[in-house]
Write a protein that binds this DNA or RNA. Structure first.
Length: 310
DNA sequence: GCGACAG
DNA sequence: ATCTTGTCGC
């Protein structure tokens, strides 16, 4: 399954004289949230001769003025450098595998299996994973630390290709394959693994950290640098303070102040870890803005990318 | 202009 | 995430 092929297959269905929008293509795949990803995918170019000029924004704007000229020749009315009436010529009857809908259903099914109880006996070996990118090339870094002595126990790095793009709330479908591969290389499996991204702080309560935890059947914690959803309850004042992230009346994560700025770190349980433990372990490892595990994994991934890119 | 959604 | 020089602040 290559995402861009999936998109090309949809664009190919738009007949001459008709148009579609980034949002409509995303809807055809099963979630309008992917509209910006569709825009990015088409901008980067897709294999084949799909008529990408027939895909415009919801307001009728084309990526290139050249595209408007072609649309005009195909009989689509243009005015003020825009498609005059988007809905009038909008093609909607896509035949689609609805891949995002399938993924969402899978997430909903998996979310029921997430455990928010501590499922570890020791919490000495803490892991961190992160992935850097150069187009479809991925570079993963993984580090295992002894949290008692703050000593490095193991480091792994791995490069590979990814076939699925970044789509907000579907991040695990991009990164999980690489994370599984690098985890399998570890000689020292961590008591708890920290993942760059959210755990249950997710619309379906199954962010990448939860998905990874279920897939590897291991305790995980999600640590994100930006808030995906929800609102902050009490504002953290001092370093070490934290405030709840509330969504639909539930506490689904914690905003932890780890530096002088208001760039909180958003911590949430992934799988087999309680909210309390997720927060405590994250705090314990924060000598800088990010927990040391995530910080080092991030540096490893970036460094691997740097040497491989040159 | 509003709203804004991890990596 | 990535694109990216010098600049600001601790």
């Amino acid at each position: 399954m290559k995402f861009s092929k999936e998109v090309a297959g949809l664009v190919d269905q738009i007949p001459s004289g008709m148009i579609s929008t980034y949002g409509e293509i995303a809807r055809a795949l099963g979630d309008v949230i992917a509209s910006r990803t569709i825009y990015a995918t088409l901008s980067q170019g897709i294999d084949g001769n799909a008529p990408i000029h027939r895909v415009v924004t919801a307001r009728g704007e084309a990526a290139y003025s050249k595209h408007l000229q072609v649309l005009k020749e195909e009989g689509v009315p243009i005015r003020d450098k825009r498609v005059r009436d988007v809905s009038e010529h909008l093609f909607k009857n896509f035949k689609s595998t609805r891949i995002l809908e399938k993924m969402r259903k899978e997430q909903e099914k998996l979310a029921k299996k997430v455990s928010l109880e501590d499922g570890f006996t020791a919490s000495r070996l803490i892991g961190g994973v992160d992935v850097a990118y150069d187009g479809d090339n991925a570079y993963a870094g993984c580090v295992i630390l002894d949290a008692e002595e703050m000593k490095l126990v193991e480091e792994r790095r791995l490069s590979g290709m990814v076939s699925f793009p970044y789509v907000s709330t579907y991040l695990s479908y991009r990164e999980l394959p690489m994370i599984k591969r690098i985890y399998s290389k570890l000689k020292n499996k961590p008591d708890v693994l920290m993942v760059d991204g959210n755990g249950i702080l997710h619309p379906r309560r199954i962010g990448i950290a939860s998905h990874v935890g279920l897939e590897l059947d291991t305790p995980t914690i999600g640590v994100a640098k930006r808030l995906l959803l929800g609102r902050l309850g009490k504002v953290p004042e001092k370093i070490g303070d934290f405030g709840s992230i509330i969504h639909k009346g539930k506490v689904i994560g914690m905003a932890l102040k780890t530096s002088k700025s208001d760039n909180y770190v958003y911590v949430s349980p992934g799988h087999k870890v309680s909210m309390k433990s997720a927060l405590e372990l994250s705090k314990k490892l924060c000598y800088h803005r990010l927990p040391e595990t995530i910080r080092r994994a991030h540096r490893m991934a970036s460094e691997l990318k740097r040497v491989r890119t040159k």
